[in-house]
Design a protein around this nucleic acid. Structure first.
Lengths: 268, 268
DNA sequence: AATCGAAGAATTGTTGAACAATCCGTAGAT
DNA sequence: ATCTACGGATTGTTCAACAATTCTTCGATT
């Protein structure tokens, strides 16, 4: 399974910038087309001319490398790319229609997020978490989430936690396991968001992204998250009641139980 | 001040791999030197042939991009590259003797660590932290450090905290402000290390690296850290005595005071 | 037969060059 | 004095080449 059978979206088409020469040997000196001959190449896909306006509107326009990283992040989250799988530069480069160098830049991003691991001269592999990593991830979560909930938060932020609980309830009613998992992550994300710290939010987002990497194996148990629904409800109620001490303890117990379960599912 | 007057070390010489063609057009087909003719190129700098052995010894051999990132990280920490300064790709590329693409990869690493900020199509700049960022950084520290110290740690790890305290004392005795600052960072690093979590350690390392970015301005006050020596001692004693609750509270008070001071030094 | 090692293929690491797109400062027109 | 067109500088991205390393395969040897 070389990861190439996944349905990659083509990222090269809507790219602003990008030479996209047809392919012939590059003997063409730069003498021609030095002046105002813009977009003169053989009938490449012409992009909408309104792109300049977008730039003026200060819309964040992610670079191709960023979009490649985003795409890979998505496939990682969807479980399309299983842990341990090798990501070949040339394959992804072709599949996504971008250059190998750009893929390389995207890899640097993902490696910084620990989603992939670089083995020098051997390639990058989808990160696979061992038992030690699972404990480590839960340690981070205990530190951050419990501290966050014990600090409380503004009413709107508490409401966001509540919303995540309801989101999970709805997903359970609809029997949508996927949505249930997402709701659970939103719940914990909302707890961290109580602190209103940009850095803590991104740290938490990264940790959750890491967890998605090995959660796919765990979801075989159809009602894996279902047990947590009541826990979330209870925690949320304590939070809303202002009993932060109790909310913290409930959350801590929850995390301990969750870690235990995860450790059991994976070879301990 | 374009950051180019800093004394860059040349990273290109000891590089394993790297074509380093003299410059002429690359019409030389790859037909020649296909077999055993290794290191046949025109008299480039010949590296020690023992490099293969190093690889066999599984010594981590960082890529050039990593070394560029490390070099920049160092200059950032030393305060050679002030916040807000623009880092031009071509300049660094020449200065360090590596290709622009490699510099680019290093930038991706540093951007992921928040040490530099990318402005699309405008370049990368040394990150500069505003008042909000200072508060944010201290929020992260409060969460992680206080949780860590309240969890206690093995005797060896407590000893490491003690060692950092003594290190600071020695630096103060020697009137070495630089060493004093480092000792202080070691102290807080050691506190987080109590938890024994790889991820928390790297998170803390990154946060401290961010702080170094704006600490240089603060160090004008000659005995800025000196006030903290007694705090550290007190915290360490509580930790050693097993009074984790008190240690946590002392640390929390310390962080609050520290944030206040930093906020005062910087605008607002 | 099992093992060792060497030729070969595949892939990564790094470079250099090319060019499109964008940004910025400046000079010219209104 | 303000706006606009022009040019230079720099980033974003691609391509092609090649060195070094790892992986594979296939013989040759004990």
């Amino acid at each position: 399974m070389t990861s190439s059978e996944a349905g990659f979206r083509d990222l090269s088409a809507p790219t602003p910038g990008g030479a996209k020469r047809s392919g012939a040997a590059g003997v063409a000196k730069r003498s021609v087309a030095a002046g105002a001959a813009k977009r003169s190449g053989a009938g490449g896909p012409v992009v909408a001319p309104a792109l300049g306006a977008a730039a003026r509107l200060r819309v964040a326009i992610p670079s191709v490398a960023d979009r490649v990283a985003a795409e890979l992040r998505l496939q990682l989250a969807e479980g399309l790319l299983l842990p341990g799988v090798r990501l070949t530069e040339s394959t992804i480069s072709e599949e996504l229609g971008v250059s190998r160098n750009t893929v390389r830049e995207a890899f640097a991003e993902l490696a910084a997020e620990r989603l992939v691991v670089r083995h020098p001269n051997r390639g990058v592999f989808v990160a696979s978490l061992g038992p030690g990593d699972i404990h480590d991830v839960y340690t981070v979560r205990r530190f951050i989430e419990v501290s966050a909930i014990r600090g409380g938060g503004s009413p709107e932020r508490v409401a966001a936690v509540r919303a995540a609980v309801e989101e999970g309830r709805a997903a359970a009613a609809a029997d949508d396991e996927e949505a249930l998992g997402n709701a659970n992550q939103h719940f914990h994300g909302a707890i961290v968001a109580l602190a209103g710290s940009r850095r803590l939010n991104t740290i938490m987002a990264q940790v959750l992204a890491e967890m998605r990497l090995f959660f796919h194996k765990a979801t075989v148990d159809a009602h894996f998250y279902r047990n947590y629904l009541d826990d979330n409800e209870e925690i949320c109620q304590a939070l809303e009641a202002g009993d932060l001490e109790r909310a913290g303890e409930l959350l801590l117990a929850y995390l301990d139980r969750s870690e235990e379960k995860q450790s059991a599912v994976h070879g301990d």
